[in-house]
Every structure is written in C-alpha cells, then in structure tokens.
Computed example of a mutant assay.
Amino acid sequence: MVSLEDVERLVGQLPETEETTQHGRRTWAVAGKGFAWERPFSKADLKRYGDETPPDGPILAIRVEDLAEKEAVLAARAGDGFFTIPHFNGYAAVLVQLDKVPEDVLRDALLDGWLVYAPASVAKAHLDGR
C-alpha cells in the first residue's frame, strides 16, 4: 500500500529527522538515533522460514518504546502487515510489510518510533502543533 518513497515523505514531516545509512541500509534518525530503517531479510532470516513463504516486498523496521509496546503493536496490527522474526526477539522494534500497511497506520507507527528518541522539547512542540 505504501512505498519507501512514502516512508521518506512521512518521516520528512517529523522535525529534526535525518536520513542516514547504517549497515548499508537507509535509516531515519532523530537525535542521532535510528528509529526506522529498511530491513530486507538475510539468508539466515529466510532459512528460518523453512517451507513457509516469508513476507514479500519492502520491509521496514520501526522502534517501539519497549517489549510490552512491541507485543501490543503486534497484537493490534498483525492484519496491517506488522510482524516480527526470531532475529528481533528481545529487541524493541517491529517489522512492517509496506505492501500491506495503510498510510495512516504507518504514519502513526513512524511517529511512535520517532517519539522514542526525539528530544522532549521537540516532541512536545510537534505534538502541540498537530
């Protein structure tokens, strides 16, 4: 439903966000910390799927506040293309299959990820201006 260009556009609406590259992948950061990044599957990821078909299309990883938030997001948004893989066990981030996520849902997820690292004054000013 959305593309990486849509991600770029939506992230561009968040103050003090910059695009960087980490591990050869596009990453979007605030206050020097990545909150969203391209996350194609590695060979090891694909091997773990075995006979199952892994999600296709572009995949985005987005930070969440903590592991409890991760579980809540996965429970609430599984039908919108949100999922996880064993490599992300114990890590406060979710994966999003961009071909399945509605733009408004992605916008909210990116905002939540941005809020994890955004300086409090910047976050407050942005939220107050919405």
Score class of each variant (00 low, 15 high):
residue 3 S to P: 02
residue 4 L to H: 11
residue 4 L to P: 00
residue 4 L to M: 14
residue 5 E to T: 11
residue 7 V to G: 04
residue 9 R to E: 12
residue 14 L to R: 04
residue 15 P to E: 08
residue 17 T to C: 14
residue 17 T to I: 09
residue 19 E to N: 10
residue 19 E to W: 08
residue 19 E to I: 15
residue 22 Q to V: 15
residue 23 H to I: 09
residue 25 R to A: 13
residue 30 V to C: 07
residue 31 A to I: 08
residue 32 G to T: 10
residue 35 F to T: 03
residue 38 E to G: 01
residue 38 E to F: 01
residue 39 R to P: 00
residue 39 R to S: 12
residue 40 P to G: 05
residue 41 F to V: 08
residue 42 S to F: 07
residue 42 S to H: 10
residue 46 L to W: 01
residue 47 K to L: 13
residue 47 K to E: 13
residue 47 K to C: 01
residue 48 R to P: 00
residue 49 Y to F: 15
residue 50 G to M: 05
residue 50 G to A: 06
residue 56 D to C: 09
residue 56 D to Y: 07
residue 57 G to L: 09
residue 57 G to D: 10
residue 58 P to N: 09
residue 58 P to W: 06
residue 59 I to A: 06
residue 59 I to D: 04
residue 60 L to S: 07
residue 62 I to D: 01
residue 65 E to T: 11
residue 65 E to R: 15
residue 66 D to W: 00
residue 67 L to F: 03
residue 67 L to D: 02
residue 68 A to S: 13
residue 69 E to K: 12
residue 69 E to C: 01
residue 70 K to G: 07
residue 72 A to Q: 13
residue 75 A to N: 13
residue 76 A to I: 01
residue 77 R to Q: 13
residue 77 R to A: 11
residue 78 A to W: 06
residue 79 G to H: 03
residue 79 G to A: 13
residue 82 F to E: 09
residue 82 F to S: 10
residue 84 T to V: 05
residue 85 I to A: 08
residue 88 F to E: 10
residue 88 F to M: 14
residue 89 N to T: 15
residue 92 A to N: 11
residue 93 A to F: 05
residue 95 L to N: 01
residue 95 L to H: 01
residue 95 L to K: 00
residue 100 K to F: 05
residue 103 E to R: 15
residue 104 D to C: 04
residue 105 V to L: 08
residue 105 V to Q: 09
residue 106 L to C: 05
residue 106 L to G: 06
residue 107 R to Y: 08
residue 108 D to A: 14
residue 109 A to W: 02
residue 109 A to N: 01
residue 113 G to F: 02
residue 115 L to Y: 01
residue 117 Y to L: 03
residue 118 A to F: 03
residue 118 A to K: 03
residue 120 A to Y: 09
residue 121 S to A: 13
residue 122 V to E: 01
residue 123 A to G: 04
residue 126 H to A: 09
residue 127 L to F: 02
residue 127 L to W: 02
residue 129 G to H: 12
residue 130 R to S: 11
residue 130 R to W: 09
